[in-house]
Write a protein that binds this DNA or RNA. Structure first.
Lengths: 208, 208, 208, 208
DNA sequence: ACGTGCGGGACACCCCGTTAGT
DNA sequence: ACTAACGGGGTGTCCCGCACGT
């Protein structure tokens, strides 16, 4: 028997979302072409317009349904209930750098950061969505650091929220660096510099 | 007497460059409109295409003749021949944040960073120019840190080049943060977190 | 007990017709949107295409089932069997002007006239339907004038058919005038000028 | 030698205006296609956009530069300085009906009336322009009637402004009638009915 | 050195109609 | 009787770049 219409519709919607994510990741939101999206998704303009009210709504949905979950899976879930956050954070950075320099995706930077840089000043819908994601990211890291302080793995004199801000901000900077330098060595150097900074926050860290 | 033709021509070219800088700063390079540029510059398409070979060449010239000098004046010149770089760097960060949150320009981020994020993956001319600028920036900071180490103002165990990478990278991250959060307090917090990190690199710094 | 299926279907059809009437009245037939129609009717595209073969058939049905009955009720029924038509016609004009300038509908003109102006040259189905309605209108007025002549209320030297043509035609002109002038005073003036003309057709009219 | 650029530009602009006038006359403003306009004008979208800021501006320019002058030439100039307006008005009506039923243009109605009916409720720019033209038309007819009263060719008890309103309004109605009936005989009958009404306003008219 | 008319193309929008399903 | 996903086309917009002219 053929699949239910609802299932087929959801699949089409998802294909459109995925194709839009890739298109906007590569070319930016404004320069991204809806024609390219529908072609890549194997759909038509009619289908796109049926599922989304326009380019803007599609972009917002990409943030909500693709970018957000990606962030959660890659950066937030690993910190869930962790009492010793440093190895986890360092592992995330190192794994990301290794994966993306290997895959070639890295020259396009971080999808979330790209959208934030491009669209935040121009569209409040994008800005508020991305601001909320970044705030959640900072909060998750800060919580983990605070748990580490209670568990004795993080130095008690560290300002957890300020450090979390620096961690998130550095992540943005690292992808940006990779974009313009296109030099894996420099990206690795930057990642290691950050890991060293994180190391200095550990409870048993020797000075510096 | 009236100005020489060459002077008038240069003035037109400069007005076009300035207008293009503002337009691309606000709307990005791809979404920026040449019509808007010539209108703002009080010139015409003919003048623009006389001075520049097209949109791409105009963008490259903006990097060479506007963005580069701006970087030198704001970040590189202050470090010239300095033996105690920390106060200078911290001063640069604090002044920039104070100025830009005051002027309202900050919501558009850093012009150099914007172009680097948008155009590096798409246009080698942009990428190489911006990469060279960022490399020079890192080198200047690293040199200043090394001079500080020789002068005894910077801890000798610091990796000057890695630290310089982190400084430049954090600067990118701070502007990015300001863009999506539009929260001066968060920007200030980020700047202060970085200043604290710099403080930890001083020769007389207590651990951490 | 619940209503019979046939009744429910008729209700849906009627809601679609009413919504289409309003939509075409406001935006014209060609610029009118079927999406807006189904939304206003609380129905779906499927229902619309179940009851009507397409936009054209819907438009024709609006003429047959909404516009036509409206004409009969407002202009034809009041003249039924009347021997002194002038007060009736004058009353119709005055009542229409009073009602529509009060309700705000008048800026959109006369639904029947709108469709006739827009669609007659483009679609023979519309044209023939509207032509038949206008012919019936003229005939009804002409008959009433002829009855008035037999009854002695209308001057015998009046050409009843020519006068009827002028009456109907003036009605079109009055709505058109209201549309572009959006001036109730001008509309009232026009109506009164026509009433004065009608007055001059009465059997006991003083010259002029 | 080749014509001056300014001349060529004006010619292009005029070709676009003429083509737009015909297109909007035949299909209405909203349903009229700019592609058809540029094709008919032998121009391109770029030229159209250079001369006009968009479809709306083109429509307004058609009213200002084509429809208005047409009205002046056909209806206003003939009344200039005339002391016996009736023959002139009657001649205008009869000539128009003869010309247009002969040429086939009449099935599309009156260009000015078409735009007024379609666009007045939707666009204030159209409405105000067309309202001004119609007001000027009414004023010109009223002035001519008043001059006729002073010269003794028009009955002194006639309300010149009300009669002018009726004349203009009837003109609209006559074209509307022609559109839906597509019957030259009916149009002629309507025109003659109006001429008879005008006859009744002459100073030496027998009552009625 | 600079102004202007213009070419050609791509884009987002959105609409009408159909078809497969309930 | 009614729903909703979807097809394909056509629209107005508007931009970048060129080729004249002066």
């Amino acid at each position: 028997m053929s699949p239910s219409p609802a299932t087929r519709a959801d699949a089409t919607r998802q294909r459109l979302l995925d194709a839009a994510f890739v298109e906007f990741f590569r070319n930016g939101f404004q320069a991204g072409s809806l024609s390219a999206v529908v072609t890549a998704a194997g759909a038509t303009k009619g289908a796109l317009f049926h599922h989304f009210d326009g380019k803007q709504a599609l972009g917002w949905a990409v943030v909500d349904d693709v970018v957000g979950p990606l962030l959660v899976r890659r950066w937030l879930d690993p910190l869930e209930g962790v009492d010793d956050p440093m190895p986890v954070l360092q592992g995330c950075f190192r794994r990301l750098i290794a994966e993306d320099t290997g895959s070639g995706h890295w020259v396009h930077g971080c999808p979330m950061n790209n959208l934030a840089q491009e669209m935040s000043p121009l569209d409040e819908g994008f800005r508020s969505r991305l601001d909320a994601l970044y705030a959640r990211w900072r909060a998750t890291v800060a919580d983990a650091l605070a748990r580490g302080q209670r568990a004795g793995t993080v130095r008690p004199d560290v300002d957890a929220r300020a450090a979390a801000t620096l961690v998130v901000l550095s992540q943005q900077g690292i992808w940006g660096t990779g974009k313009y330098s296109q030099d894996p060595a420099l990206m690795t150097q930057a990642g290691e510099a950050l890991c060293a900074y994180l190391e200095s926050l550990r409870a048993d860290a020797s000075p510096g």
